[in-house]
């Protein structure tokens, strides 16, 4: 069935676009056979519109409503039970994934520490006894032995003698050494003799940290 042949149906049932309708009406003026077909279809369809709705019997209407509502009531406990199961499942999944995440974090920390050890089988320990509080941060080291940090995470660093240090640079410096550094830094400064040259001198003045 071509689209063209179906146009008479869409026309009589008023389901045509306005532009399509205009074009079809132009065709109707020029084609008598098409006009007869459309008029015949229109008459039959008008007769069909005389069809009256058939009402369901009153008792059926009531029976349907009552049966349907009873079935819905039966469904209710099942549905609420279903929601309970869904909520319980959600809680269990949440708890399980929480535990899993916690475990994986712990495992990750251990792995990180372990991997740091793997790359350096021979480790020289620099733990100056003179530094108070150092033992809190320093690490017990022996080849291949596990590394345990007591308090916080320490970034290893290498000093000028290529020795790996496992304590915080800043914390290991006691007050006395800090004072000495401070004192020496002032000694590097020279007094200004000619104030007129101060600007140019200031321009070249660089304050740098002293060596430990």
């Amino acid at each position: 069935m071509s689209k063209k042949e179906n146009q008479s149906i869409t026309y009589i049932y008023d389901e045509m676009d306005p532009s399509e309708k205009l074009e079809f009406e132009r065709d109707l003026e020029n084609d008598n056979n098409l006009l007869i077909e459309v008029e015949t279809f229109r008459k039959i369809s008008e007769r069909l519109f005389e069809l009256k709705a058939v009402q369901p019997p009153e008792e059926l209407y009531e029976a349907v409503l009552n049966k349907a509502f009873m079935m819905r009531q039966k469904q209710k406990p099942y549905q609420s039970g279903r929601y309970m199961f869904a909520a319980a499942a959600l809680v269990i999944i949440g708890l399980t994934s929480g535990l899993f995440l916690m475990n994986s974090n712990e495992a990750g920390t251990e792995n990180e520490t372990g991997s740091a050890m793997l790359g350096t089988p021979e480790i020289v320990v620099n733990s100056p006894v003179a530094v108070p509080g150092l033992m809190d941060y320093a690490t017990t080291v022996s080849s291949g032995a596990p590394l345990h940090t007591e308090t916080s995470r320490i970034e290893p660093w290498v000093d000028e003698n290529d020795v790996i240090n496992f304590y915080d640079r800043f914390r290991t410096t006691n007050n006395a050494s800090l004072d000495s550094m401070f004192h020496h830094s002032f000694q590097k400064l020279t007094p200004v003799t000619d104030p007129s040259q101060s600007i140019s001198i200031q321009r070249h003045l660089h304050l740098t940290g002293g060596r430990r």
Partner: peptide, 10 residues
């Protein structure tokens, strides 16, 4: 008809 509305409601 009854089957239809029972299905509808459930």
């Amino acid at each position: 008809f009854q089957e239809t509305f029972t299905k509808v409601i459930t």
